[in-house]
Nucleic acid binder design. Structure first.
Length: 284
DNA sequence: TGATATGTTATCTT
DNA sequence: CAAGATAACATATC
């Protein structure tokens, strides 16, 4: 579930809570979920939590290493101290249930007794300790984030013109554009009135600019509403800070419902093995 | 029981 | 070789 807005929401919460705390120990309950040499961050104080595309980055004082975290489809981070519980990620019972849960893969314990739980039902996500220098070089080779200045008309056009794939697949291709996943891709295409299956290289200049604006708009809206909690809302109560973007979905998970623009019935199709939602009346 | 699931990547197949 | 399509990862829910 987490796309850029969800990861940004998590990043902001964690940055507010974790800076200055020292990690006492890291308890790895599932080997696949953690890699790298943790001795380089144990006992070090957290300096900053940041984000690049869908990756959370944790920086430490007096350390050559950083910890990077990818939640993939079902990862969630839950921070708990005496008074509060902050969560971000996949909506699952862990948000409000007892911790650690059967999905808890890694636990960080801080010097003040607070804890950070990394839960991940499907175990696709990861936490990695990597060298800062190596990671900085890696990042230079990555595609720009969709909210970076670099993501302008010329950039998007050059990416789209090079591909004959469905435009929705290009939008969610992290090699080309950082941070957009299925939810926001569907909504951005709806906003710009473009059929998700259109060949990327068939878009006109005007459509490309509409699409670029729409992507930026839905991503910023997602951040504003604290991300989205998609389905499974029944699992969340007031203890879990669930996002509210799902209340603003334009087409995502709205198949069979009316398009708010012209009343057309929203259809669900499959593109590249993933679901795509669109209004057949206004998306061409 | 079978289909489906929000992300990424390895492995085919053109 | 490269672009594109598809399977795979591991688990839960409808």
């Amino acid at each position: 579930m987490p796309e850029l807005p969800e990861v940004e929401t998590i990043k902001r919460q964690l940055d507010k809570e974790l800076v200055g705390k020292k990690i006492k120990l890291i308890n790895v309950l599932r080997d696949k979920s953690f890699s790298g040499d943790m001795s380089d961050v144990l006992g070090r104080a957290i300096r900053r939590v940041s984000r690049r595309a869908k990756v959370v980055e944790v920086e430490f004082a007096k350390s050559e290493s950083v910890v990077i975290i990818h939640l993939k489809m079902t990862g969630q981070l839950v921070y708990v101290d005496d008074k509060k519980r902050l969560v971000g990620g996949h909506p699952a019972i862990d948000w409000v249930g007892r911790l650690p849960s059967s999905h808890t893969r890694v636990i960080w314990e801080f010097d003040d007794g607070s804890k950070l739980y990394f839960n991940d039902m499907r175990v696709f996500g990861w936490m990695r300790v990597v060298k800062r220098d190596w990671y900085e070089e890696e990042k230079k080779r990555k595609a720009p984030d969709v909210i970076d200045k670099e993501f302008d008309f010329d950039y998007l056009k050059s990416v789209l013109k090079k591909s004959g794939r469905a435009v929705k697949l290009v939008l969610t291709d992290q090699e080309k554009i950082g941070g957009v996943g299925n939810i926001y891709a569907n909504d951005a295409l709806y906003l710009s009135k473009i059929y998700p299956g259109r060949k990327a290289n068939s878009l006109t200049d005007i459509e490309i600019e509409h699409l670029r604006k729409a992507v930026v708009e839905v991503i910023n809206k997602g951040i504003k509403y604290g991300g989205s909690s998609a389905a499974d809302e029944k699992f969340v109560n007031t203890l879990g800070q669930k996002g509210r973007y799902q209340e603003h979905f334009l087409v995502y998970e709205r198949s069979g419902k009316e398009c708010s623009r012209d009343g057309g019935l929203i259809k669900k199709i499959r593109i590249g093995g993933r679901s795509a939602f669109y209004c057949p009346e206004c998306q061409k």
